[in-house]
């Protein structure tokens, strides 16, 4: 068994004359949480939907859990190939804003989806994991936006997938719900699930991802850990402090420790208002997509 869950080589996708994905290369290792970042229209969702077997591609090689998703897609997107079905059993998908089953309860929907998978998890346990136990008997149309999203996640994980796709999973979550959700995703990853996540929240990518990839204009322009992306770890640090006159001063330094020591000597002890910071993931990301 290969140690990559996903291998993409020179992926291309055209919409008419527009190139949506332009020679994208990507490898996602088994068991890792991989975050795809990129502005709207950069080709993130298109790429992910090709990997999910929802769209056809126009070029390149793609392997997801050892299978070409084009086989799963089939001629009209509805392959009845048994290989396709077995592959679907191993892949969990949480799309952006997917359809609700308005008049059914949370419990009924999750229980029904569990029937699709041979190795499904216990529906009650899944509902509990996404924090919807109190809503088990509620009709889905009465759920709040964040609760609906959690139901989406429940339906994505009820089949105990090896690989889970999450397309902007925490849009509409409050901060507390987002943290609970992160804990759930970490828990899944600890259990061996590979997670591919697209998100607009840099903080989310930083908190969750083992590696992040940045897509712009249909290409993957950088892949690294959140700590090292765009040479973030070796970027100049910014040291700021307050002068005895009361104004603020700051300096960029490749050797901030030395600078702080010097300041400490100059002030004879505590440096008032001292901060030392590196660029945030967001700073790095924004500089990448604007250049």
């Amino acid at each position: 068994m290969s140690d990559s869950a996903i291998e993409v080589d020179g992926l291309r996708k055209l919409y008419g004359d527009t190139v949506a994905v332009d020679g994208l290369d990507l490898t996602v290792r088994r068991g890792e949480i991989f975050a795809l970042l990129g502005p709207n229209g950069a080709g993130k969702t298109t790429t992910v939907e090709i990997l999910e077997g929802y769209r056809r591609r126009d070029g390149g090689r793609v392997s997801v859990l050892g299978i070409d998703p084009a086989v799963v897609h089939g001629k009209r997107g509805t392959s009845t190939d048994p290989t396709a079905r077995r592959w679907r059993e191993r892949v969990g998908i949480v799309l952006q804003g997917t359809g609700e089953f308005d008049e059914l309860t949370v419990g009924e929907v999750v229980t029904h989806f569990a029937r699709f998978y041979p190795g499904a998890d216990d529906p009650a346990r899944v509902i509990d994991r996404v924090g919807l136990s109190a809503k088990t008997r509620a009709r889905t149309h009465t759920l709040s936006g964040g609760q609906k999203r959690r139901l989406d996640v429940a339906l994505g994980i009820v089949g105990r997938p090896e690989l889970l796709f999450l397309d902007e999973p925490t849009t509409g979550f409050d901060p507390e719900a987002r943290r609970e959700f992160w804990a759930l995703i970490r828990d899944l990853a600890r259990g061996g699930t590979t997670v591919v996540l697209t998100t607009h929240y840099l903080q989310e990518a930083e908190a969750l991802a083992d590696r992040v990839g940045v897509i712009t204009a249909g290409r993957l322009i950088a892949v690294d850990t959140p700590q090292r992306l765009g040479d973030r770890d070796s970027a100049l640090a910014t040291v700021s402090w307050r002068t005895p006159e009361g104004s603020w001063e700051s300096a960029q330094s490749a050797t901030p420790t030395a600078l702080v020591a010097e300041l400490a000597a100059r002030f004879g002890g505590e440096v008032p208002g001292l901060t030392v910071s590196r660029p945030t993931l967001e700073d790095i990301y924004l500089s990448m997509i604007t250049t």
Binding site: G53, Y54, G77, L95, G97, T98, G99, Y117
Partner: peptide
Amino acid sequence: ERDRGVLKRLLGTPMPR
């Protein structure tokens, strides 16, 4: 149902068509 994405969601599961 197609508009609401119900069909797309079902398509992403191993449910036989």
